[in-house]
Write a protein that binds this DNA or RNA. Sequence first.
DNA 1: GTCTATAAATTGATAGAC
DNA 2: GTCTATCAATTTATAGAC
Lengths: 212, 212
Amino acid sequence: MAYPRSPSSEPVKPQRMRGNRPAYTTETLLDVAVTVFTTRGYEGTSMEDLAAAAGLSKSSIYHHVQGKQQLLGLALDRALDGLFAVLTQPGATSGPAVDRLTHVIRGTVRVLLDELPYVTLLLRVRGNSPIELAALARRREFDQLVAHLVLRAQRDGEVDVGLDAAVATRLIFGMINSLTEWYRPGRADRLDLPETVVQLVLTGLAPRPGTG
Amino acid sequence: MAYPRSPSSEPVKPQRMRGNRPAYTTETLLDVAVTVFTTRGYEGTSMEDLAAAAGLSKSSIYHHVQGKQQLLGLALDRALDGLFAVLTQPGATSGPAVDRLTHVIRGTVRVLLDELPYVTLLLRVRGNSPIELAALARRREFDQLVAHLVLRAQRDGEVDVGLDAAVATRLIFGMINSLTEWYRPGRADRLDLPETVVQLVLTGLAPRPGTG
DNA sequence: GTCTATAAATTGATAGAC
DNA sequence: GTCTATCAATTTATAGAC
């Protein structure tokens, strides 16, 4: 490599634009967009809203991404990748079904909290475009894999047989997903939310003998 | 009242319009609108969409309501009225706190199922207009009254003291509200959903001795 | 009660200068 | 990488005929 190093091998040094702000990348712009999308809703957000939130003009946004839909697609993929990663972790693929289920519940809560705005956006998608429909299809796939795990745990006698497994799965993950409605980083961080959810799912509210 | 009866005292006889369809009232139009709103999202629904769904022209809709926002406001009020009614029923105002809580859980699930599209719409509101902000304020009031009930049950030793009451309340009602994401009338109607939810909340998934 | 026609504003997106 | 200027399409809403 005696030749001058090609520009692409240089370390990334962010250029400073007006106001001494680092120039946007697709990634940093996505961060801004997802925040606005989750605040005002995707359809309720105009490119003008995005531009104002980013401190850019509308046309500058089109330098980084093809359009509003692409921003949505990137955000939904990120959320889904995080969720599917939980299902391939060792704790989710071996051992008693109820332990795998517990692992998936904990992992799903963690991903939801770590990627809060992205998962929030995913959970609100209605299927109004091909991009949204594709995300809904991936999400259904995730749901089905989890439902299968609950069914296994039930057949193995590890969880209550009095409940319909499919309904219980939906209710449990509905509970988990509802975290996006109120959790904000910084608040209630002393609470171990993944553990709280696992406890509530496994034993419910009823006082257990010896703890009251 | 010897004078001819005024038109307003006549029994309501719906006029038949084109295609032998009864003329719309604000109420029947609201029904159509709420269905479209929950399918495509409120912001994702144009007056043109509503007109197409109703089989009317856009301008005819303005004969019945002032505009899109008013349709939203009427729908949100209906959902909130139903939820608040649960809190004033006898079972919710006397007796041990845990029984009152159980009553409210059952009642909330019932209202949610009975007024499904209206409550669904309420749960998706983001606060993008004064009408939405007012609905969110009423909803917060409902949530606080319920949270108070859980706290009472906890203090009375009727539910597990290992859980944060406020967090548990949010998770439980998050689970209930998640019914709007998948419940459709006709399907799973043999399942007693209010009871299933109460059981899951009180005892969780864990198999109880004697039932396995 | 419903229609056609149209106004006024906003929307997602592009062209081209710096 | 960002800007101003602009376009074509869509959106909410109104006017006025039947």
